[in-house]
Design a protein around this nucleic acid. Structure first.
Length: 201
DNA sequence: CGCCAGATTGACT
DNA sequence: GTCAATCTGGCGG
């Protein structure tokens, strides 16, 4: 039984949304086939006060979307790879959550075909990898993930207790904030390898 | 139209 | 750990 994550969920602080997205399912509908995976790694991005956020870089289409309606996809390309974000906070407040890694669930055969690799570990363990595995590109930009008829959705799956949640600084950003805004499920083999947690404690 | 930035990945040392 | 490849949007001319 799949229960769609409600629209109101995305009106919160991106760090909260990022944390609570862990354990939920990202579902991609392709014709009569379904590809899905559990979200195991996310990052939160703010607006003006976040030097790593593209919402702080002046007028562009990304900025417009981040200021827009929460619960919609924000898809753009970096270094030749599509990256999938979900807009957070109410309209007028720029924020978003980057989906960084999934644990493959349904449609693994399609993911293998899309990625061209047979190694489960490498299928969706990275922001650019999972978009390719799920056939996500700019054509899906701006779509709501909370609607029943959407080709890309997020549904409830599993609650992750605090004891299983790890945090660290965001990966690949030049100017990070002082607080750790990357969230991941400890010990999950599909979490992308990156920075180590700030402290061992 | 040309040039550059950029939240990545994959291969090599 | 380090380095090159890959693609689109934004901006200047």
């Amino acid at each position: 039984m799949s229960r769609l994550v409600e629209h109101a969920f995305y009106f919160k602080d991106p760090a909260i949304v990022a944390r609570k997205l862990l354990g939920k399912l990202l579902v991609r509908r392709l014709g009569n086939r379904v590809i899905s995976g559990m979200i195991v790694e996310t990052e939160a991005y703010y607006g003006e006060d976040d030097p790593a956020s593209w919402a702080s870089k002046g007028d562009n289409w990304i900025r417009r979307v981040m200021y827009g309606e929460p619960g919609r996809t924000l898809i753009y390309m970096v270094h030749g790879h599509w990256l999938l974000n979900v807009v957070a906070m109410p309209p007028g407040v720029p924020a978003g959550v980057l989906i960084r890694a999934l644990e493959p669930l349904e449609g693994v055969d399609l993911m293998v075909r899309n990625r061209g690799v047979n190694n489960l570990r490498l299928l969706t363990s990275g922001p650019g990898r999972l978009t390719r595995a799920l056939a996500i590109d700019k054509s899906l930009h701006g779509l709501p993930v909370y609607k029943k008829d959407s080709p890309i959705q997020i549904i409830y799956h599993r609650e992750i207790p605090d004891s299983e949640v790890g945090r660290s600084g965001r990966i690949g950003v030049k100017r990070d904030l002082d607080i750790p805004l990357r969230f991941y499920i400890k010990g999950n083999p599909y979490v992308s390898v990156g920075k180590k947690p700030k402290s061992s404690g």
